[in-house]
Write a protein that binds this DNA or RNA. Structure first.
Lengths: 187, 187
DNA sequence: TGAAAGATACCAACTGGACGGTATCTTTCA
DNA sequence: TGAAAGATACCGTCCAGTTGGTATCTTTCA
């Protein structure tokens, strides 16, 4: 058995593993059911080892949240760069990111984690701050009420799929995505 | 001090109080932070008394969920009865119920409880079942993709307000509600 | 019909496990 | 060789659920 005692020290890799395992476990079982013991075990480290990297559980969770938000932000930017129509550009990127199951979107492993972060009262401030900043930045192109409705519907679709409402919805994810995108074009 | 021990037995009233207090506390502090002790205290009963009415904590939560769902269902029916335009009738009622802060809607005391129930993996089956049944029943009038988008946007708005995103949204709740309703009329 | 018998409602104290966090010791490596 | 990385063992708290009772209500039957 190769414990972290024998193998080469690689603190950055361990820290990374702790973050990834925390994300994965929270996604599978919910943020509530997340225990530091389980995270440490999954990362192949003892609890003491975990507490060496993070002063307490909250700090671990905060780090995970920041990590996820960064990824989401980058994803949005990537979509926007590929879009050369100004009006509704942010909204379209937002829709795409919400549906893209490689990142945060429907069916992605991080999705369940993300919703825990959103619904956790202490946790959603970072998200709100991010959104407010984005909306301010894209005010000129994405301020129309219909665009807000599109973004809210994307949120709703995302949540619905997390809840396993896929079979309940009469529109397929891809169809829904295309229809939402279409609504951002007719101004 | 008049404890429930000495005073006249009124099991139904106590059971009702336990449900109401559980709903209220979960709304204030979240389902995660809900303890049976706190519920019992709030209802003026000891923990042992609570466990007489509910075999375990989960059963209490399940009962609360069933209760909330019943109320929501009744609210939908009430709105539908007042609407004499067939197309999109369910969707309009759904939107109204989501925004009505007297019942479940934005700003209501039950909202925070409801989202806990929704996001709780074990808990949302009843909700999905309810929704599936409703969609089946109103298939003829509420099957259009745009109506699904409207319902999803209503969900999104509801969630956004729970998260305190009110100041972030550029559209007021009432304006949003009217715009969503308008989208259900032009078929 | 009324008193005993049984059932239901409720209480107070306790149990056992889980979990976050700490103190201290060992190992690695620059 | 000493500071960082990580292990081991332990503590205190919180909380769901249990146990063994007492009070009140309902049913039975002489």
């Amino acid at each position: 058995m190769t414990t972290a005692y024998n193998r080469k020290k690689q603190p950055e890799a361990v820290r990374r593993a702790l973050l990834d395992c925390a994300t994965k476990l929270a996604g599978e079982w919910g943020l509530t059911a997340l225990t530091v013991q389980a995270v440490a075990d999954a990362a192949g480290v003892t609890k003491g080892g975990l507490f060496h990297h993070f002063p307490n559980k909250q700090a671990l969770i905060d780090a995970v949240a920041a990590d996820l938000l960064d990824q989401f932000d980058a994803e949005i930017d990537a979509y926007m760069a590929k879009d050369d129509h100004p009006y509704g550009r942010f909204t379209r990127a937002y829709v795409e990111a919400n549906f893209n199951n490689q990142g945060f979107g429907i069916g992605s492993p991080m999705a369940a984690m993300a919703i825990s972060l959103i619904t956790n009262p202490d946790m959603n401030r970072a998200w709100l701050k991010w959104l407010a900043e984005r909306l301010r930045r894209h005010y000129d192109t994405d301020n129309a009420p219909i665009l807000e409705i599109v973004r809210l519907a994307a949120d709703g679709a995302w949540t619905a799929h997390l809840m396993g409402a896929a079979e309940v919805l009469s529109t397929s994810p891809d169809d829904l995505r295309l229809r939402l995108l279409a609504l951002t074009l007719d101004n």
